[in-house]
């Protein structure tokens, strides 16, 4: 017991020292020359046509990273599905207390939140947003509906028949889209569409397409997570 306590104290001291060292290192750290950043900033607008440089980087120059991010998200959704299937479904779905406030606010807020999700998804190349955050926002709108009407009611309308196929189909399309340039004799992971003029709605090459597909994928994934949690762990 005593030895353990001493060991823990030494461990804590080492951790604190490491932390202090990191903080000192952080402050004495010389900023990188900024060459790479400057290159991105000067070349991205003309090369990608996206007004939002962040999007230009993660959906054009670093598309490779983003694809694996989507894969990670899919694996997370798969994990939720797999582990929650062990819990037996609630046989009697608990009645949602009829709260007028929740129902009215769901009616009132569902359309704008869903629209904001779509807007964020489609305008990712122009302003902050993109498929990931847009998809989650749209999924959260569905969550509001599920809280007000019950997960099973919403699930019947949204999930069962088509979404499962759509989810994996979209994933397949997203993963195979970067290989499409090979068909026309170009290197994979290069842009297919012309960049267009920066700031226009239709610009940024294939970035809006990727954003849309990622948005659909994340939207469905979010809904699957919410639906499985609600169905197998009880209503809220």
């Amino acid at each position: 017991m005593r030895h353990r306590r001493i060991g823990l104290s030494i461990y804590a001291i080492i951790l604190v020292c490491c932390f202090c060292g990191l903080v000192i290192a952080l402050f004495s750290y010389q900023e990188p020359t900024g060459q790479l950043g400057a290159i991105y900033l000067s070349r991205a607008p003309s090369e990608t046509g996206a007004a939002n440089i962040v999007t230009a980087i993660y959906l054009n120059y670093r598309l490779y990273d983003t694809l694996f991010e989507i894969l990670i998200f899919s694996v997370a959704v798969l994990g939720v599905r797999f582990y929650l299937s062990d819990y037996r479904e609630k046989e009697i779905v608990e009645k949602i207390p009829e709260s007028q406030i929740v129902r009215t606010s769901a009616d009132l807020f569902f359309p704008p939140i869903f629209l904001i999700g779509i807007y964020l998804t489609l305008s990712g190349h122009l302003s902050p947003g993109g498929g990931f955050s847009g998809g989650v926002v749209a999924g959260t709108a569905l969550l509001l509906c599920a809280v007000a009407l019950g997960a099973n009611t919403v699930g019947k309308r949204f999930y069962e028949p088509t979404l499962r196929w759509l989810e994996w189909g979209v994933l397949l399309v997203v993963l195979s889209l970067p290989l499409l340039p090979i068909v026309v004799g170009r290197l994979p992971f290069t842009g297919l569409l012309p960049p267009g003029t920066m700031g226009k709605v239709i610009s940024g090459g294939s970035i809006p397409i990727y954003n849309l597909l990622i948005g659909i994928k994340v939207f469905i994934g979010t809904w699957v997570i919410i639906h499985y949690f609600m169905r197998h762990r009880g209503e809220v």
Binding site: T222, I225, I226, M230, R233, V236
Partner: peptide, 8 residues
């Protein structure tokens, strides 16, 4: 989202 999932 995460807040909600934790609550469930």
């Amino acid at each position: 989202l995460i807040t909600f999932i934790y609550i469930i």
